[in-house]
Structures are given as structure tokens and as C-alpha cells.
Design a protein around this nucleic acid. Sequence first.
DNA 1: ATAGGGTTAG
Length: 436
Amino acid sequence: MLNHIHKWKPIHFLQNSRTFAPLSSLIFSKPSAFAAKRNDEPTVGPDSRTNVSEIVTGLRILGLRGINGDHYYKHIMSTLNQIQVDLIIEKLRIENPESVFSFFNLLRNEYGFRHSRVSIFAVAHVLAANRRFQELRLVVKQMVDEEGSGSATSLCELLLNRFRDWDWSGVVWDILAFSYSRSEMVYDALCVLAKMKDLNLKVSTSTYNSLLHNLRHTEIMWNVYDEIKDSGTPQSEYTTSILIDGLCEQAGLQDAVSFLMDAQRKETGPSVVSFNTIMSRFSKLGFVDIAKSFFCMIFKYGLLPDSYSYNILIHGLCVAGSLEEALEFTKDMERHGLHPDTVTYNILCKGFRLLGLMSGARQVIQKMLVKGLNPDHVTYTILICGHCHSGNTEEALKLREEMLSRGFQLSIILYSVLLSSLCKSGRVEESIEIAL
DNA sequence: ATAGGGTTAG
């Protein structure tokens, strides 16, 4: 340990590095940064000689990889507390914003560090400024999941008190509302929206859509829709389809169809997504013929069905037992330049399974493999259940092995099917073995 | 945010 302590001597390190041109030029281009050691900052490390500024400096010189490859730094990282981390992140954010997120992630992923809300929001603002929306969503989602429902009030307060004038805070607010909605904490999402309204902040279409989707079984959906219209937020094709789906449940299919037709009068016209939603509803209620007529209507509106349209219809036909027609539509799909995907093959596989034709199911999967598509957990579930159902426990067990070797987990339901099938065929011992 | 799966027993 002593060796490593000696290894870390910031001043010597700088003096020695004078002989190495590339590094020294980098270092001495900003000498002021190295007057780092300040006495008013908490010290860290085994000898209590390093402080936050020096860590930030180290990060600048060595980079994240360098710092994590350094034994002494590694030790410091594992002993940092939340106050120190908050200080580091704040300094990095100002002096070296490109590295904030990496540092934040490193601590969380490799050291199991739990960041404070303040640091999370600070990092979120940096991500928003850099338009790294995917990572931004992830960071906020993790926070929201950890904080749980009912946390919106305090998180909003924090945003309001400490981040009010920050650039991009509108985006962070929106992502916060979106994350609550996505995690099905609808009232927290609504709470954030109410605050955003007070602050005159813009709500994005995707946040509104997610919220509409979660509220589609309730009357509140219409309040949100009114708000969308009042605020002039642009609507997407999903907005209409979510409303249609909600109408199917709240009012009835007739009203939903009227709404779809009304959409025609608007400038954009109905979208394929809306047709798909209606088709799916009718199909699930057993009205495949009506679903089919909507499928034809897509063309009449000058639109083209997408792979969702085909899969919905093929599924409806399979469930209705019209396997031949389902196969016809699959060919038609290809004629229209749409490739049957894993979902299509799974649907067809289930079609054969429903008729007890496991050899046909196998052929479907064979064709799928030829097309370069891999079976997923749905494929395996259909096959295993089918084989269990037809008494071919041996084949089901083989598929279980294959599934596990490919890194898929068996669901509880699939296990119960498999175990009961084994028990029924008198193979109780094996059943117990698998269960344990 | 529109497409695909699955249970036991009673």
C-alpha cells in the first residue's frame, strides 16, 4: 500500500512529466488548474492528502480509463461519500462536462455508488444539453423507479429550487413526466405536468402519448387530450390510435370507428397505425371478417398496410382456424415487399399448434431459420407448450435444453406446463429434478 | 404508443 501512496504525488508527477512532450504540453497549457489543493475541501484517500479538486485534475490528465486503472485512485473511488461525489460532479460539470456522465456511470456501475438526486439532475442537464436523450431517459427512469410513486412532489421541488434557471431544464422536466408515465406512476406524471403548466414549460408529444396510453381506460384521458389541443402540442399518428383504442374500451367499437373516420376530415387523414388498432380490436373479439374489411380499406385510403397490419390479420385468421388463408396473406405480404418477421412466424407456428399439427409448426420454424431469423422466447414457449399438449414430453425437454443453452429463461408458466406434463406421464422424479 | 405466448386444479 505504501508504494502506491508514494506513486501518487501530484507535484512530482507534474515535474517529471515535463520531459514527456505530448503530456506536458497538455498539462502546462492550463497551469492554474494545478494550484488545486484547497484546504476547505474534504480530503480523501488513505493518507488524507488528496482532495476533490485533485481528483478532478487527475481525471483531466489521466482520463477516466487511466484513473480507473490506477490502484491509488481506485482505492479513493471506493471510499468516496456522497458529499464528495456531489462536489466532484459539480466541478466536472463546469470544467469538464464531457466526462461527467462517464464518471457518474463508473461510480454507479463499478462501485455500486448511489448518487444523490442533485447529482442525478445535474448529470441529466448535461445529457440534455448534449442531446443524449436515450441516456437521459435511462438516468431519469432509474431515479424515478428508485424513488417510487408519490415522489413527484419532492422531485419537482428540487428541480424548481436548485435548477430553475438552468439551460435545458424544460427538457429535464419533460423527461421526468415521461419517466413517471412509463413506469406507470400516472399521478406522479400528472403532478409534474401541473407544475410544468405553472412554469409555462412545453410538454413533448411522446410524453403526452405515453400518458394518454396509461389513461386510456379512464375519463381523464379526455382531459389530457383537451390539454394537448389547448396547448397546441403537435399530435402524432400514435396520438389518434391511442384515443381510438381508448374509445374501443370506454365507448364501443362503433364510436371508435367514427373517430377513425373523423380523422379523415382532418388534414392528415387516418393513419395505418389507427387502422391497425381497430383491426386488432375486432380481431380479438373474433370478428376477423370485419378486421379484413378494414385491411382492404387501408388501400382505399391510399395507404399501404405495414407488417403490423399483416401480423394482426394473420393472427386473427390463425386463431379462427383459417390457417390456409393466413398462409395466403403471408405470401401476399411478401408480394408487397414486406418480409415476414419473427412475430409472423410465431403466429403461424401457433396456428399449426392450435390445430395440433406440431410437424407443421416445426416446418414453420425451419423456414424461419432459413430466412436467417432466430427463434425467441415466444417461439420456444409455443413449441414447448405444443409438444407438452400433444404428449411429446421428450421433445419439450430437448427444447428446454436448447432454450437454456441460448441464454433464455423459462417463465414460471412454462415451467408449470413442463412439470405437469412430466408428472402426467409418470416421470415425477425428473419433474422434481427440474423443479429444483 | 399499433403485432406474437403460457398454467396448474377445482
